[in-house]
């Protein structure tokens, strides 16, 4: 079915037990402590498009990325891959092959003891895609060329490459199993801007050439604007606003989305005085009652303290905000 989303999260949640060891807990007389990294997220990634998640550290975006490829199992709710349960899909290697991930840290994402050609060929070998060694080598060379490296680079070790080149190797590894769905967890945030532009261009190019579906995680709104079709803004484990990219930037609705945009330094030097949002992100172990953003929100009212807002349609977007719903924005 063409309109089954590539990835769908249905009220998915992921909690981490961050309790102290049993003995200490008994002595201090405290209960278990749960960190609600992701707390009820629903979204769908359309085939061939890019769905991005933005938010500050601790908002749960990286946890969503790991839920999406099955590195974590959801504590509640469902994660569906191409219409079926993810855990079930991952049990079959021909389904697992269809999803891949690109990581943030180009220095930690490649095994330092392996040669580049073995790193890139790992998925090919794991899935038994090309049994013949010569064919594997040819494929690795092709992949290296595709990501803008030389086939001769295959015999080198990761430490011989710069950060940007390593990220290209990561992409080549991800592409080697001919995936359809790529989860990209902050793929450019460890890179310098000029290199970031190279990688973003490469990723866009590969997407249009191969029809890839991206789940793109970033904290950088400007980067997200360049690559996304749809954007979810996350705050403290929940989605605050989910909107088509252009709409989100043209008309940010959620007060948090507006605060985020307001916070970005102005490169155009219009000299406009920015009013930075006050306060800090609260702890996901003890989130505020009601709407998690209410202690920092200029529009907060009594209802925001008491009742947690659900995602509701507002124009072409979905917004979880009482003020927006009530037209107080």
């Amino acid at each position: 079915m063409a309109d089954t989303p590539m990835l769908e999260l249905r009220d998915a949640a992921r909690y981490f037990d961050v309790s102290r060891p049993l003995l200490q807990r008994v002595i201090a007389g405290e209960g278990k402590r749960l960190l609600r990294a992701v707390d009820g997220v629903s979204l769908a990634a359309t085939r061939g498009r890019t769905l991005s998640l933005v938010g500050e550290s601790g908002c749960g975006k990286s946890t969503v990325a790991r839920l999406a490829v099955g590195l974590y199992r959801p504590s509640a709710g469902q994660v569906m891959f191409d219409g079926r349960d993810l855990a079930e899909a991952r049990a079959a290697s021909d389904q697992r092959r269809r999803m891949q991930m690109i990581f943030q840290d180009p220095y930690a994402s490649l095994n330092p003891r392996w040669r580049v050609r073995d790193i890139i060929a790992e998925p090919i070998r794991a899935f038994g895609l090309l049994p013949d060694r010569a064919a594997q080598e040819a494929r690795v060379a092709e992949l290296l060329t595709q990501v803008g490296l030389s086939p001769l680079d295959g015999h080198k070790f990761p430490h011989e490459f710069s950060g940007g080149q390593r990220q290209r190797i990561s992409i080549a590894r991800a592409l080697s199993s001919n995936p359809e769905f790529l989860v990209c967890d902050e793929p450019t945030s460890a890179l310098d801007v000029s290199v970031q532009a190279q990688i973003l261009n490469l990723m866009k190019e590969l997407q249009s050439r191969m029809g890839l579906t991206y789940l793109f995680i970033s904290h950088n709104l400007a980067v997200v604007r360049q690559v996304s079709d749809q954007i979810g803004v996350m705050y403290l484990g929940r989605i605050a606003e989910l909107a088509p990219a252009e709409s989100l930037f043209r008309r940010p609705r959620h007060p948090y989305t507006r605060a985020l945009m307001e916070a970005i330094p102005d490169l155009d030097m219009t000299g406009r005085a920015r009013i930075p949002v006050g306060g800090e992100v609260p702890s996901p172990i003890n989130p505020p009652t009601g709407c998690a953003f209410h202690p920092r929100c200029p529009l907060a009212g009594p209802r925001c303290k008491a009742e947690r807002p659900e995602l509701k349609p507002a124009g072409d977007a979905m917004v979880a905000c009482h003020a927006v719903e009530e037209g107080r924005d």
């Binding site: 930690a108 490649l110 003891r113």
Partner: peptide, 25 residues
């Protein structure tokens, strides 16, 4: 580390990850 996670995404078995990825490091 992310290289181990990358292997897990592919579905490399734990014994194999331990031997070929973790052990040498």
């Amino acid at each position: 580390k992310e290289y181990v996670q990358a292997a897990r995404v592919i579905g490399v078995s734990p014994p194999r990850i331990m031997l070929s990825h973790v052990l040498p490091n």
